[in-house]
Design a protein around this nucleic acid. Structure first.
Length: 556
RNA sequence: GGGCUUGUGGCUUAGCUUGGACAUAGCGCCGGGCUUCUAACCCGGAUGUCGGGGGUUCAAAUCCCCCCAAGCCCGCCA
């Protein structure tokens, strides 16, 4: 299954043996080769010989090596190129036509992945869903890579924001408009309550009282908080379902007060040499480069968010082998403080994937100020566009069929538009790009897949043949061969955009093949081998799309 | 003020971990391709001081230092 990885390992081993170098500088060969090495440069320096000469000699030696049979080895100046032969291509095809291609071997490692975890004070907006889509794509990649995975949503149900919501529901007109979604309703009250607070700072005191009541466990107040948070989460779940995003478990922050975990972790922190107990309990992490003290408990004895978060992560660490959080860049400092403290406590240190902010052309988003584009609005708009597009292209289909395709196409556009950018890049939301269904979009990849499906459907039964000939055929097979390694890289680097780039390149290569090498019009063995290749490409596109959380629709 | 992240053709973007062969692609622009397997496509062309400066190296978008710009963070908020 891991053909490419296997070849690489063998090559590395042989190269080490024949050069005596530890680092044999093996890399992807780009357009020149499947793999290539620049080790001749390094040897040139040691041996005081011309690099090209060394490369030539090395190629002569390597070509005789029995383990490298079937690999074309050539020196191009100082570069040594390795081009894999027919066996590699046919093995790739055999693997790639199998269901589930790209999956790695099952592992016993239990992984917990937390993502989204937005405060329940208004609908998910285009910033939050960057978190959802990065997190959900990573989750799919982890499952594809064979890990045992649980996906969690951490519900912040005792924050100031939610106290403001509850205050609004008590003191303001709280009627829900007809057809108004729960999370949109909550945002409306939250925004209104914030306006009142600006006008009358006295209200802040009332909000503080609500927070204290919750911390004390006052039943009616706790119930009010839970009620509004639950309603907001209902709205979130609708949005996430529309994005093909799912969680296995919702974990409530306040549970970590009630079950005593927070108290327990505070008692352990108190014993750390870095603990400073004055009015507050805080950690002095300056020896690790953190300037400010890390407050764990307030002077009034109540816990802060950080304490609950530590309790939550200790619980995760006790139940899973790897703990991964997907968090916005605004959490970088507190994330690092959390990691540092977990280490001091001897607990499992969470791995954190940070993504930079999404802003609007007019500036940063704010739920409080009502300045945001909700994910629901984006989905509605994109589905409308997709439906018009499908109707224009496929007028013969009935409405439900067109609606179904439009939904999948819209979803593909949203997810791909967000996942294609590397997480550490801050972005500005752009309607034009979000609504683009052309190249470098999700629908573009879906389209390639649909074309492949169409060919296979028209072809009917055929005998599989794994021997390819033309350059476009071989180029496509070699692209197909990379999927398992791409999955592995996504997991190793926690960078889902690698899969997005790969999938687009695979679609490019398929479209090129589609253009140059006729399939159905060819005959005999050529037809069979091209159909086999189309089947492998279709399956690889399908597995890639589904790992991206995009529907691999058969027609569009 | 300090810290983290980013800066690649007009716009968006890959590559940076592990330095190496003409810097990846898309949008837009110019030109071409549907009696042919779905043109949401394909082919060709123009467009780059890889933010700026210094350094290391046979070789720097990639490593090191300085500077500039943008985003984020620096609360007994969450």
């Amino acid at each position: 299954m891991l053909m490419l990885l296997e070849k690489r390992t063998i090559l590395e081993h042989v190269l080490r043996e024949s050069t005596g170098m530890h680092d044999v500088l093996l890399a992807e060969g780009g357009e020149h080769a499947d793999l290539a090495t620049t080790v001749a440069f390094a040897l040139a320096k040691l041996n005081k010989q011309a690099p090209a000469r060394i490369a030539q000699d090395l190629v002569a030696e390597l070509s005789k090596h029995p383990e490298l049979a079937g690999i074309t080895i050539e020196a191009k100046g100082p570069y040594i190129n390795f081009i894999f032969g027919r066996e590699y291509v046919s093995e790739t095809l055999k693997a790639a036509v199998q269901p589930g291609y790209g999956s790695l071997e099952k592992k016993t490692t239990r992984v917990v992945l937390e993502h989204t975890s937005a405060n329940p004070n208004g609908p998910l907006h285009v910033g939050h869903i960057r978190n959802s889509i990065i997190g959900d794509t990573l989750a799919r990649a982890f499952r594809k890579a064979g890990y045992r995975l649980e996906v969690q949503y951490y519900v912040n149900d005792m924050g100031r924001q939610i106290a403001i919501v509850v205050w609004g529901f008590i003191h303001l007109d709280n009627t829900q408009a007809v057809g108004e979604k729960e999370d949109a309703h909550i945002a409306r009250i939250y925004i209104a309550a914030n306006r009142e607070i600006e006008k009358d700072p006295e209200i802040t005191q009332q909000v503080n009282e609500l927070m204290q009541l919750v911390e004390k466990g006052d039943t009616p107040t706790v119930k009010k908080f839970r009620n509004e948070v639950s309603r907001c989460l209902e709205g979130f779940e609708v949005t996430m379902k529309n994005l093909n995003v799912a969680h296995d478990r919702f974990v409530w922050e306040s549970d970590f007060i009630r079950n005593g975990y927070t108290e327990r972790i505070i008692n352990r922190i108190r014993k750390l040499p870095q603990a400073r107990q004055e009015e507050t309990l805080a950690l002095d992490l300056s020896e690790f480069g953190f300037e400010n003290k890390y407050v764990i408990r307030r002077s009034d004895g109540t816990s802060v968010y950080a304490a609950r978060d530590l309790a939550f992560h200790a619980w995760k660490g006790a139940n899973f082998d790897r703990v991964i959080d997907v968090l916005g860049a605004d959490h970088k400092l507190i994330g690092a403080q959390l990691q540092c403290t977990m280490k001091l406590l001897g607990e499992k240190v969470p791995e954190i994937v940070h993504f930079e902010f999404v802003s609007l052309p007019e500036g940063s988003m704010s739920t409080r100020a009502g300045k945001f584009i909700s994910a629901d609005d984006l989905i509605t708009e994109i589905n409308k566009r997709a439906y018009d597009e499908v109707t224009a292209r496929r007028p013969e289909l009935d409405e439900p069929a067109r609606r179904a395709i439009a939904r999948s196409v819209g979803l593909a556009a949203v997810r791909y538009d967000i996942v294609k950018v590397s997480p550490e890049k801050s972005t500005v939301f752009n309607w034009k790009e979000a609504l683009d269904f052309e190249r470098q979009s999700g629908p573009y990849i879906q389209y390639s897949h649909a074309r492949a499906c169409s060919i296979l459907e028209k072809a009917g039964p055929f005998e599989e043949c794994y021997e390819l000939e033309t350059p476009t055929e071989i180029a496509l097979a070699k692209q197909i061969a990379k999927l398992p390694m791409v999955i592995e890289r996504v997991i190793a680097e926690l960078h889902p955009h690698i899969l997005a780039t790969y999938s687009r390149e695979l679609a490019d290569t398929f479209n090129s093949f589609y253009h140059f090498d006729p399939v159905l019009k060819s005959e005999g063995k050529v037809r069979n081998r091209r159909l086999t290749l189309v089947k492998a490409a279709q399956n690889t596109l399908k597995e890639s799309l589904e790992t991206l959380g995009i529907d691999a629709i058969r027609t569009m």
